[in-house]
Design a binder for these strands. Structure first.
Length: 558
RNA sequence: GCGCCUGUAGCUCAGCGGAUAGAGCAUCGGACUUCUAAUCCGAGUGCCGCAGGUUCGAUUCCUGCCAGGCGCGCCA
């Protein structure tokens, strides 16, 4: 349990004891005591922690909130660590407590190091996080890039709170689009020797297909002796393997590595679709109508039933997706998280229905919807046309603004937010760019610590440092911020809100920069210097911790 | 028509049941003989889309409406 949470519990217990005592003395008539909730007020004059119990208790007690608050304060047993208790505003009880807990935070950070803030909420539960899963017939776009950053950091967060999280990329290598892709590649290949050769009307227009054709000419098999069908099939499989390899390489450059790349084709070749259809049929959720086989997803709240086998006896894409999710569940994952684009929200109902029809609980599947990204350059929206094959890819983004800035910009907003990504700002290496602001804080600390060691300044471990000299306002602010991290990590992981960590990093860097200006370290002597060195080394560890959760480099020099 | 997301400072967005609604950018004015000025300090700005409801208390929860984005196939 984090130090901050411990303080809250300590105070909550005191309050509860006081209320019980008040009831025993018949000063207050209430049926039961509400849950005592302690919060950290944003306003410093409201103390270190505050409680609203009196406001909640006022009505059942038929007294004014302030009267209740006064009564509680009166009954609080004296504690050494409590310096002052106020009743303020409409009836809040504000606690001012001694700084010892903040020094304990520093000790904890030193002890836990880069694991600071970890917990065991997940208790090792097996979670499978699926994200990106872009079609292997084209480069990844900016929504895929956003999904990559969010999904990857979410996985890191889930691991930090004790889940056994795996990541997976589903490769749609079996659909009709892959056949179109095969024909497109074949046509471009033929055009290398025959300029007149026609390009399919429904073909993929992007230049990457032509580039792939040139690579095929250099490295692939000789296609001249093949039949038309053989050529297209070869182009399809060879081309998709190439595309997948490219996607994987781009994601690696983005510091996103998947535990597994799952091929849809494997479901088809192992008979997984037939198997899942049989399972659903045996459970009574399938019926024939108008020459097609339907899944009664409305039995679980979906808008309409879904076709599983079309009249032409082929499967719909939903069929493979159901088989895929069944496969995930059978592998022992008790919670599946899918991170999808906004155009897939209609898909939630049918997949949740499928999971239930297969005998698993409804919330075994959790679908997170990511909203769109608009790219801005010099204040103008960047126009993209998928038809013309003109759009900014993940690779372009990394080349233009760098991996760290790109990840930060995707992670700084909530999933629900329609993100405006300002390329000009992200590429800027200046104070306006939040990424550099955070990294600069880290570099500054490294510089101080390096100079301390050059100058043979005594650096002791936190447990031996005279921490009680850390009592200036900005020092307290800094330690309080450090104390918040464990709760921030839990909230970010459990509510699937990675942007909390991006914001936390920015806040922490801001307080550090202010501290840096107001409090010198190497220029000071004795206890102050020793204690501040201990403090900044803790700040450095925490910055490293949050940057690594965000997948952003913590540079030693800038 | 139905569904999802959004509407908060000039701009981009936090906050999502509590006390005087915040941050960055933009604007203006200060601070480098001392650990990196990629920094700091100060200044001001808000019918929290509109209207009801729940509550001791609503930007936060509920309902309706308005506006914007995106979906709604025996496509994937």
């Amino acid at each position: 349990m984090s130090i901050a949470v411990k303080q809250k519990q300590r105070l909550a217990t005191l309050i509860k004891d006081a209320i019980e005592h008040i009831i025993r003395d018949d000063q207050l008539q209430v049926a039961d005591i509400p849950e005592i909730h302690l919060e950290t007020p944003r306003e410093k004059s409201h103390g270190d922690f505050a409680s609203n119990v009196a406001l909640v208790l006022a009505k059942p007690a038929k007294k004014s909130p302030r009267q209740v608050a006064e009564l509680i304060v009166e009954y609080l047993t004296d504690q050494e660590f409590i310096e002052k208790v106020d009743v303020a505003g409409p009836g809040f009880i504000n606690f001012f407590i001694s700084n010892q807990w903040l020094y304990d935070v520093l000790l904890t950070i030193e002890k836990e190091g880069l694991n600071y803030g970890a917990s065991n909420y997940g208790k090792g539960e097996q979670v499978l996080l699926e994200f990106v899963s872009a079609n292997p017939v084209g480069p990844m776009n900016v929504v895929n890039a956003r999904a990559a950053a969010i999904g990857d950091t979410l996985a890191r967060l889930l691991r930090a709170v004790g889940y056994n999280a795996s990541t997976e990329y589903y490769v749609n290598d079996a659909g009709v689009q892959t056949e179109v892709f095969g024909r497109s590649l074949d046509a471009r290949y033929r055009q290398l020797t025959d300029e007149e050769y026609p390009f399919p009307e429904d073909g993929y227009p992007g230049v990457y297909v032509s580039e792939l054709a040139q690579k095929l000419q250099r490295e692939g098999m000789d296609l001249s002796s093949m039949s038309d069908a053989e050529r297209v099939e070869y182009c399809r499989t060879w081309g998709i393997d190439e595309m997948v390899a490219m996607q994987r390489a781009d994601l690696v450059a983005f510091d996103v590595e998947f535990d597994r790349w799952f091929r849809e084709q494997d479901l088809h070749s192992t008979g997984a679709l037939e198997a899942v259809i049989e399972t659903l049929t045996n459970s009574g959720y399938m019926y024939n109508e108008e020459g097609a086989l339907w899944f009664r997803s409305t039995a679980f709240g979906d808008d309409k039933d879904r076709v599983i086998i079309k009249t032409d006896r082929t499967y719909t894409y939903v069929t493979a997706d159901i088989a895929y999710h069944y496969d995930k569940l059978k592998r022992g994952f008790t919670r599946l998280i899918d991170l999808l684009g906004p155009d897939h929200h209609g898909y939630i109902g049918r997949m949740k229905a499928a999971v239930q029809a297969l005998g698993y609980p409804k919330d075994a599947l959790e679908v997170l919807i990511l909203q769109y990204v608009a790219l801005l350059r010099n204040g103008q929206q960047v126009k993209m046309s998928k038809r013309a094959g003109e759009f900014i890819t993940l690779r372009d983004l990394i080349d233009e603004v760098g991996k760290d800035a790109a990840r930060y910009f995707f992670l700084m907003r909530s999933l629900d937010s329609h993100l405006d990504f300002d390329l000009t700002l992200a590429a800027e290496q200046s104070s306006e760019n939040p990424v550099f602001y955070i990294q600069y804080a880290h570099a500054r600390i490294c510089s101080i610590l390096a100079q301390a060691s050059e100058q043979n300044v005594q650096v002791v471990c936190v447990s031996e440092a005279p921490l009680s000299v850390l009592n200036k306002e900005v020092e307290i602010d800094l330690m309080k911020k450090l104390a918040e991290l464990p709760e921030e990590i839990s909230a970010a992981a459990l509510y699937r809100e990675p942007h909390r960590i991006a914001r936390y990093a920015l806040d922490l860097a801001g307080i550090f920069h202010s501290f840096y200006t107001h409090c010198h370290i190497l220029g000071e002597e004795g206890n102050i210097r020793i204690a501040r060195l201990a403090l900044v080394s803790c700040v450095r560890l925490v910055l490293q911790r949050v940057l690594s959760l965000l997948g952003i480099v913590a540079p030693e020099r800038m």
